[in-house]
Amino acid sequence: MDREAIVSAALHLLNETGLDGLTVRRLAERLDVKNPALYWHFPSKRALLDEMAQMLQARQDFGPPREGESWQQWLTRRGRDRRQILLSHRDAARLVAGTRAGPALIEKFEAELNALVAAGFTPGQALHAIGTITRYVNGFVLDEQAMAEHAAEAPQPPAGAFRATPTLAAAIQEAGDNDAAFEEGLRVLVAGIAARRRAKA
């Protein structure tokens, strides 16, 4: 049993139990080992969660823009990719929040910053641009996954629940589903980053 196998098993267990139900004891039972065997690989649950987050995020297509891809297209694709990665596991947005990136992810992040600097960003502007998109995606998926959990536990609103608030009902119908809402927010953020750069130039 190696670290990678433990982390992979922990991610599978996360889908079943959620983050609150994920314990070292349950993971040890899943792997048919005693708790101390896991602590030999990971000194704390926090260390295990960090590595789970790193393994999950490593599946994302990190790296600079592809040939012929503008930085705006790249940031948009990066945001979409990250959302899909986070939606692939229960409570993934909560899992990655506040975790340490690890050397491999930091190296890839360095290449991304360099690509934006080559496109005319300062290092600080590049950091803010990527960080803004990342935080937007994390927050959106956090809310998305929390609402999904709530919907599974609570009854749906009855038909005609929004009769007293017709503007809200029209807004919900026009705004579309989560995918549409996500895309709109992503467009606004990327356009805002571009406008900010033009203003500073």
Rank of each mutant, 00 (worst) to 15 (best):
M1Y: 08
E4N: 09
A5P: 02
A5D: 11
I6Y: 01
I6E: 00
A9D: 10
A10E: 02
L11I: 03
L11E: 01
H12T: 14
H12Q: 15
L14T: 01
E16S: 08
G18D: 07
T23R: 01
T23H: 03
T23F: 03
V24E: 04
R26N: 05
A28R: 01
E29Q: 12
E29C: 09
R30E: 07
R30L: 09
L31R: 04
D32I: 08
N35P: 08
P36Y: 05
Y39C: 02
W40L: 14
H41P: 03
P43R: 09
P43W: 09
S44M: 05
R46N: 10
L49R: 01
E51T: 01
Q54W: 01
M55W: 08
Q60D: 04
Q60M: 11
F62E: 08
F62D: 06
E67N: 11
E69K: 06
E69A: 07
S70D: 05
Q73Y: 07
W74A: 03
L75M: 06
G79C: 02
R80H: 15
Q84C: 10
I85E: 00
L86E: 02
L87R: 08
L87G: 05
S88Q: 02
D91F: 00
V96D: 00
V96Y: 00
V96R: 00
A97F: 11
A97P: 08
R100M: 06
A101M: 09
G102R: 02
G102M: 04
G102Y: 03
L105C: 05
I106W: 09
E107N: 08
F109K: 05
A111R: 14
L113K: 14
N114P: 09
N114S: 15
A115Y: 04
L116A: 05
L116S: 04
A118E: 13
A119D: 13
A119L: 13
T122G: 13
P123D: 10
G124T: 14
Q125G: 14
A129R: 03
I130H: 06
T132G: 07
R135M: 15
N138M: 15
G139P: 04
F140V: 04
L142D: 11
D143H: 15
D143T: 15
A146N: 13
A148K: 08
H150V: 15
E153D: 13
A159F: 12
A161D: 11
F162A: 10
F162K: 05
A164W: 10
A164Y: 15
T165Q: 11
T165F: 13
P166Y: 04
P166H: 07
T167G: 14
L168H: 07
L168P: 07
E174P: 06
A175L: 12
D177I: 07
D177Y: 08
A181E: 14
E183S: 11
E184V: 12
V190P: 04
V190R: 03
V190A: 03
A191E: 13
A194Y: 03
A195P: 06
R196C: 09
R196H: 12
